[in-house]
Nucleic acid binder design. Structure first.
Length: 381
RNA sequence: GCGGAAUUGGUGAAGGGGUUAACACGGUGGAUUGUGGUUCCAUUAUGCGUGGGUUCGAGUCCCACAUUCCGUC
């Protein structure tokens, strides 16, 4: 079946919305945070642990699985769910982001994009049709349109041309999409240009996708102000009865800012990447467990957290694991950081239902920002 | 006793007269938003065993001493 979004309640004071998303693998409440498992694994966790932290949908990536092990092997295994032994919903990214990160602008043509494999340097060619065909074979529950993801710093002219091409790519992808129980999302681009976001949103919505994403907001070096503008400029043109997905966003503050503006779905590598590099989210801001001050700190990372890591282990022990390069440290922190974001989303959903989203937001910001561990803007003060 | 070699940060060390002592590991911070798993960035010896001397200038050359190692009686 295709996914189905049911809008249940709109917050009285903001654009935040609470809904239910029906999928092939159960119904999930939104807004939702989706952990990222690029290579058919949420790094360091097994599927039982993904479930334990209260996770719903997870992400995987067309580009990476295309290169290794190849979509045919995944198909032979019985599809991505069977291959990785995960019986929850899976969304696959289209490889579009890799256009931004791995290709040169001159390698992008109307037909598709020339990549250099990050594994062996081999020249590869990816098109909208190819991306959709791979995703059909992977048999994910939600596929993404193949898009170009230009930086917000791109000129107005480049951005307009890029967005027009992304829309043509979306049409081509939709035309060949043939997996009956896989949904397909369109992607809105346009940087922080109001007119281009409006154009991208209205034209993409005309194609009638199962959901809509806002992309190009979490590229390296872009300001949070531009991200918030990109959302504000796109949301008014998206239909109420379809889910809205903000791609690549996952700082706690940005989850609140996104929800407030009407976003239903988020994904981000940040919780798991930060974990592997020794950082943890806490209600009092982000901390670096490798810091010497935790050497003899025998308290948990966050005493209010209900995850396996916080219930059983101390900062001093986790620090030791990280410094000694033991993978258990990375695993425990990944579990904690993911649980942290998922729990925030649980609280956010409750607050929307009770029309007290802004109160929760203020409460969270007060605690999270009080030690200035996180800035509300990437711009220096 | 005699002869030879060595002595440079927390560690392994480079440098054999010319500005601020290489590099690596370790230490200490920071970064990370549709993945960078072991990544990236910054910082970390006002000092080269001790004391003299030569020189415009000395880890670098000379002398004495100390310590360590090797050989030998």
């Amino acid at each position: 079946m295709k996914i189905k979004y049911n809008l249940i309640h709109k917050d009285k004071n903001t654009k935040a919305r609470y809904g239910l998303l029906e999928t092939n693998y159960g119904t999930y409440e939104t807004p939702i945070f989706m952990p990222v498992g690029t290579q058919a694994t949420v790094k360091t966790l097994d599927p039982d642990e993904i479930k334990e932290i209260g996770s719903g949908i997870i992400l995987s990536n067309t580009y990476h699985l295309w290169l290794r092990p190849g979509e045919d092997i995944v198909a032979k295994a019985g599809g991505l769910h069977k291959f990785m032994n995960y019986d929850g919903p899976i969304l696959t990214d289209s490889g579009g982001f890799q256009v931004f990160s791995l290709a040169n602008p001159k390698d992008i043509s109307e037909e598709g994009v020339i990549f250099k494999s990050h594994i062996n340097g081999e020249k590869l060619f990816l098109t909208p049709e190819k991306s959709i065909a791979i995703q059909n074979k992977l048999d994910s529950d939600i596929a993404m349109s193949f898009d170009e993801c230009p930086p917000a710093s791109a000129s107005h002219e480049y951005m307009q041309n890029s967005v027009e091409r992304t829309i043509r790519w979306a049409k081509r992808g939709k035309k060949v999409h043939s997996n009956p129980h896989q949904s397909l999302f369109g992607i809105i681009q346009g940087g922080a240009y109001e007119d281009i976001r409006r154009f991208s949103a209205t034209e993409t919505v005309k194609l009638n996708f199962d959901g809509y994403s806002i992309g190009g907001v979490a590229n390296d070096g872009e300001s949070k102000e531009d991200m918030y503008l990109a959302i504000d400029y796109s949301i008014p043109y998206l239909p109420e009865d379809k889910p809205r997905y903000l791609m690549g966003v996952g700082e706690p503050i940005d989850l609140f800012e996104g929800v407030e503006r009407g976003i239903d779905m988020f994904d981000c590598v940040l919780p798991t990447r930060l974990a592997r590099h020794g950082h943890a989210f806490t209600r009092n801001g982000k901390i670096n467990l490798r810091n010497a001050k935790y050497k003899e700190d025998f308290t948990s990372i966050d005493e209010n957290c209900d995850c396996k890591c916080c219930k059983n282990y101390t900062k001093a022990y986790i620090r030791h694991l990280l410094v000694a390069n033991e993978t258990l440290g990375q695993r425990l922190l990944s579990i904690h950081n993911l649980r942290f974001l998922i729990k925030i989303m649980e609280e956010i959903r409750e607050s929307i239902k009770n029309d007290r989203f802004l109160e929760l937001k203020e409460e969270f910001y007060h605690s999270y920002l009080k030690n200035n561990h996180s800035k509300t803007s990437k711009q220096k003060d």
